[in-house]
Every structure is written in structure tokens, then in C-alpha cells.
């Protein structure tokens, strides 16, 4: 029984091999020379287990951001079409001339801590190891006692991020507010955006033939990542979608009356003698939900749809507790 090589060691050996091989390595060469493979290599066998291991390892490298290339050498085009693999140095290293100050490293540290315990903390910590490898130590003195946190409790977040990274089509069931049954959406996912604490997916809706926005928490099924790729959005398309969201928000105004000294009065930061305020909102249902916490202390003056929705929400709470 050959000695078992740990996953991290095999990946490290594979990376070194692909970085140092100027002309790339064929799969057979990798299996014959790289520690973690060569112990189990049988030049005469079909090496099915090694092939599967190599496929998994390639995915792992991509996931941690080590970009490998594969190509068929020109001279082999005609006969034996065997792929060769390599990691190009320019794909691997930081661009030349990037250096960080101690203050910048401190900011980057704090930025990584924003994800503490959330599903992105592993990626954030790996990024920190690479950032620290650039050499500078953090000057965290001005950030002591600050612990900002964002969470990603939406189960759809990581699958959607993966689909965006690989330009893969997705589908999922989406429950629009007011609908009783979810509908299936077929999309080309473009970007995930956190707007005022809510995660939103900007995607091209293939059935409606235009970009649409989806709140992650209204996704009610697993995200099905399909084996169909698409061309990523043009430069500026995501920015345009975001701008349209902002314009949409600016165009929707609500007027709310608030009891003085109430939690709502504190929350919305009203002036000393102020009892009404106007605000714009992005999504009627979302804003109604934000108001629900203060529902006994406020009155929606306008628009009527908002007032109706707040009342309907209250009735739902009543029915659920009858």
C-alpha cells in the first residue's frame, strides 16, 4: 500500500509541476512524476481512479483561483491529440508593482472579518493569507473594537456565485410577493448585489428576454446550475441595471406619519418636532416589511398600495396565530 499523500500536498505538487513545465505536461507525464499521483500510476492500466482524481484537482485549482491552461501542441494536431497542461506565470502571480501599506493591510483584514462565520469566510481567509504573503504587517490600531458583519444566510448565494463565475445558466423556483405559487425562472446570472442589506441577483431572464432582478430570499428551490454556458454581460450592462434600480427607487415615494418618541421615530431619525417623513423605496413589499416592525406606531399616509399592503401583512400575522 503506497503512502497516502494529503490533498493539500498533492495540489501543491501539481501546482509546482504545472508552473515549472515550460511546454506543459501530458496527463501521463503528470501521473508518472507528480507526488500524490505517481504512487498509484500503472503505465499499462487504464488509471480510472487517477483520471477522476485529476478532474477533481483541476476543479479545486480553479476554485482557489489558480488558473491552468490546456492545449494540444501544433505538431501533434494530426495524430495523437493529447492535451498538455500548464500554469502560466502571468496567470499565477499578482501584477507587477502592487504593494500594500500597513494601513491598507489593516483595512483588508477588517474587510475579511466582515464575513466572519458566513459562508464566504473560507474564501476571505484564503485571500488574507495571500495578502499577508505580500509581506506587510497590518497596522490595526485604529480599528480596535470594530466588528462589522455581513451574513449570507440565503442558501442560493454560493451556487449563484459559482454559476456567475463559470457563466453557467441557472434555473430556480421564485416566489413573487402576492403570488401563491412560485414560478420557474430560467436565467443567465450576471451579478449578486447587496443593497441595503438585501442580496439581489441581477440576471438575464431568458423567458422574458430582458434583465431582471431577484431577491435571494424569495428563491424557494435549490439553484439548478445547468451545463450550458453563456457570454458574460457586456461591460457596463450590470452597472446600467444597477442605475435603473436606483432610478426606480428614486421614483417611488412614500409618506409616513410617526408617533413622537416611538421606536419608529428613533429609527427613522425624525427631528425634535417632526411627525411625518418622506422617503423613497426600492420595492413595495420590502419596504412594507421594514415598516411592519413599527406597525403600531406609524400610519402610511401614501401611497395607498403601501398602506393596504401593511394592513394585509398584519392580517396574515393574525391568521397565522388564530
Amino acid at each position: 500500500m503506497p503512502e497516502r499523500i494529503d490533498l493539500s500536498e498533492r495540489l501543491f505538487n501539481l501546482t509546482c509541476a504545472l508552473l515549472t513545465a515550460g511546454n506543459g505536461l501530458s496527463k501521463a507525464e503528470i501521473f508518472a512524476t507528480v507526488q500524490g499521483y505517481k504512487e498509484n500510476y500503472d503505465p499499462a492500466g487504464d488509471n480510472g481512479a487517477l483520471n477522476r482524481m485529476f478532474e477533481r484537482d483541476k476543479v479545486q485549482l480553479t476554485e482557489v483561483g489558480v488558473a491552468w491552461r490546456s492545449f494540444i501542441p501544433k505538431e501533434a494536431m494530426d495524430d495523437n491529440q493529447e492535451f498538455r497542461y500548464l500554469i502560466a506565470n502571468e496567470d499565477f502571480v499578482w501584477p507587477k508593482g502592487v504593494s500594500l501599506t500597513a494601513k491598507q493591510v489593516a483595512l483588508l483584514n477588517l474587510a475579511a472579518q466582515v464575513w466572519a462565520k458566513a459562508s464566504l469566510s473560507a474564501d476571505a481567509n484564503r485571500a488574507l493569507h495571500r495578502i499577508r504573503a505580500m509581506g506587510e504587517s497590518a497596522d490595526s490600531s485604529s480599528w480596535i473594537g470594530i466588528a462589522p458583519r455581513i451574513r449570507t444566510h440565503d442558501p442560493a448565494f454560493l451556487p449563484l456565485s459559482t454559476a456567475i463565475e463559470t457563466n453557467s445558466r441557472v434555473s430556480f423556483d421564485y416566489l413573487k410577493p402576492g403570488d401563491l405559487e412560485p414560478t420557474v425562472r430560467n436565467l443567465e446570472p450576471w451579478s449578486l448585489q447587496n443593497i441595503a442589506g438585501q442580496w439581489m441577483l441581477i440576471a438575464f431572464d431568458l423567458d422574458r428576454d430582458q434583465p431582471r432582478n431577484f431577491l435571494l430570499r424569495r428563491i424557494v428551490s435549490d439553484v439548478d446550475i445547468q451545463d450550458v454556458s453563456f457570454d458574460p454581460p457586456q461591460n457596463g450592462e450590470v452597472a446600467l441595471a444597477l442605475e435603473q434600480l436606483q432610478q426606480h427607487k428614486d421614483s417611488q415615494l412614500a409618506k409616513i406619519r410617526v408617533k413622537p418618541n416611538s421606536a419608529a421615530w428613533f429609527h427613522f431619525d425624525l427631528g425634535q418636532s417632526q411627525t411625518e417623513f418622506e422617503t423613497s423605496f426600492l420595492d413595495l413589499s420590502l419596504f412594507a416589511e421594514e415598516l411592519m416592525e413599527f406597525v403600531d406606531e406609524i400610519e402610511v399616509v401614501s401611497p395607498t398600495e403601501l398602506a393596504d399592503l401593511v394592513r394585509a401583512n398584519l392580517l396574515k400575522v393574525r391568521v397565522a396565530h388564530a
Partner: peptide, 8 residues
């Protein structure tokens, strides 16, 4: 030093 993955 290796650069970051897009997700990182």
C-alpha cells in the same frame, strides 16, 4: 505570491 481567485 499567487493572485486572488475572483471569489476571494
Amino acid at each position: 505570491v499567487p493572485r486572488l481567485s475572483t471569489r476571494q
